[in-house]
Design a protein around this nucleic acid. Structure first.
Lengths: 132, 132
DNA sequence: ATTGACGTTTACGTAAACGTCAATATACTG
DNA sequence: CAGTATATTGACGTTTACGTAAACGTCAAT
C-alpha cells in the first residue's frame, strides 16, 4: 500500500471527483499536506475520506460528519471539558444510529411484503397464461 | 383514531411545517383529497407521510422516496412488466439498505472505540487529580 | 363588523453539496 | 522545446429541499 496519494488517485479509487475532495477540504473534513501547491494525501487522510463517504451513505450532512471526524481526534488529546463533550456527542450519534437501524429494519420488512405481493401477482398472471 | 386530518394537524404530529407537507405533495409523495381548496388527509395519506419521514431519516432524496412509495402501490395492480420492474427496484433498495446497515455497524464500533478512549483519558485525569 | 385562526397560491430566497468552466502553473515526455 | 497530462485557484451555475413572506379566502366567535 502506498504511503501517499494524489487527489486524482483518491478520486478514482472512491469514484468521486477531485472537486468534491477539494470541497471536503474547504469544509475542514480533510487537511492534506502540500508539496508546493499540490495536495499530498497520506494514509490517515485516505481513511478520513473513507469515513466521509461512509457518513454520506448514511445521509449525514458534511457538518455533522466533521464533528464525528473531530471526535476521533478529540479522544486522544484535550482537556476534561472537551473529553466530556465528546462523550456526549458519542451518545447523540449512537442514538441517531439506533434510530436509523430501526428504520432500516422496518424498511426491510416493508420490502419483503412488497416483494411477496409482487411475486404472488406475477405467478398468478403467469398461471392464468398457462390456463388460457 | 381520526378518519381525516388537516395539514396543520399532521404538521404538528410529526414536527414539520405545512410548507414541507405541501412541498411533498408537489413532488408527488402525497396526494390528499380536497374539500373545496382545502387539503383533507386520510389515514393512508398519514402513513405515506410517515414513510416519507422514515426515508428522510435514512438520507434518501425525495425522488427516491417517491419510487419506494410507488412500489407499495405497484405491488397491487399493474401488468407483468410493471411487477417485474418493481421486483428489481425492491432488490436495489434492499442492497442499499444492507450497505447502510453495514455502515451503521462500523460506525457503532468506531463510537465504542472513541468512547473508551475518552473514558480512559477522563479517569486518568481525575485519577491524577486525586493523586495530586 | 372585525378579529383571529386556519387555509390557499405564487414567488422569491437560501443553504448544502457539489458541477462546470476558465485561467494558470508545473511536470514529464517524445 | 512544444505538447500532453495533471495540478491549482477562483467564480459562477445547478439541484434539492424547503423557508419566508405576500396577498388573499373562510369561518367561528366576540
Amino acid at each position: 500500500m502506498q504511503e501517499t496519494f494524489t487527489i486524482s488517485e483518491l478520486g478514482k479509487e472512491f469514484g468521486i471527483t477531485t472537486r468534491a475532495i477539494r470541497f471536503y477540504e474547504d469544509k475542514q473534513l480533510l487537511n492534506p499536506d502540500r508539496e508546493g501547491k499540490k495536495r499530498v494525501f497520506n494514509r490517515s487522510d485516505r481513511i478520513r475520506l473513507k469515513l466521509v463517504l461512509r457518513g454520506k451513505r448514511l445521509g449525514w450532512p458534511l457538518e455533522e460528519i466533521r464533528t464525528v471526524l473531530d471526535m476521533y481526534d478529540a479522544g486522544h488529546q484535550g482537556e476534561l471539558q472537551q473529553l466530556e463533550y465528546t462523550c456526549r456527542k458519542v451518545e447523540e450519534s449512537r442514538t441517531q444510529l439506533e434510530q436509523q437501524k430501526r428504520d432500516i429494519e422496518a424498511s426491510m420488512q416493508d420490502l419483503d411484503t412488497i416483494e411477496k405481493r409482487c411475486l404472488a401477482r406475477i405467478s398468478s398472471i403467469k398461471g392464468d397464461e398457462n390456463v388460457a
